[in-house]
């Protein structure tokens, strides 16, 4: 793979981005929050409706019996729409890694809200994700500063 040190976002694409609610970075954050909500709701809904004896259970269709799954679907749709909007402005190689900030937010929200403990190994994982996010976000932040 050729090593390429060019900034991956063109300055023009960033300069032309809308501001306020239509800002792609705001929409990325909105998408992440909705994914966080849907993940938690989906797991609870799936657990509530788990029926291992049903032949259909492997398809996930039986999960629709839970209202929590429908709420999760609602949040998935919102996050999907804002994600589509993000894709219009931001390359996938930047947008997708940044969207995985949700993998830090899920264990942290379990720790803060539900009082679950976080093991040493899990803290290491959270640290790795944060370092990775910082590395991906750095060239973007530098470009934003320049504008």
């Amino acid at each position: 793979m050729p090593i390429n040190f060019d900034p991956p976002l063109s300055a023009k694409a960033l300069r032309d981005r809308p501001s306020g609610f239509a800002n792609p970075w705001f929409q990325l954050a909105l998408s992440v929050v909705c994914v966080l909500a849907s993940e938690l709701l989906l797991k609870q809904g799936a657990s509530d409706t788990a029926n291992r004896t049903s032949a259909w259970s492997w398809t996930g269709i039986t999960g629709l019996a839970s209202p929590l799954v429908w709420w999760a679907i609602f949040f998935v749709i919102i996050s999907f729409l804002s994600w589509l909007y993000v894709l219009r402005y931001v390359p996938l190689t930047i947008a997708f890694p940044l969207s995985r900030v949700v993998d830090v937010l899920v264990p942290l929200s379990c720790w803060v809200i539900l009082g679950e403990t976080i093991s040493a190994r899990r803290w290491c994982g959270i640290g790795l994700v944060i370092i990775g996010l910082a590395i991906v976000a750095k060239p973007v932040a530098r470009l934003e500063e320049r504008l």
Partner: peptide, 27 residues
């Protein structure tokens, strides 16, 4: 497939995030 620029920095960042997510979920 989309011919996006994948810099060294982005590759390292993506690898660290992948490794971190795996580590978070293993424990």
């Amino acid at each position: 497939t989309l011919k996006e620029k994948l810099t060294m920095q982005l590759t390292i960042g993506a690898l660290l995030i992948s490794a971190g997510v795996v580590l978070v979920s293993l424990s």
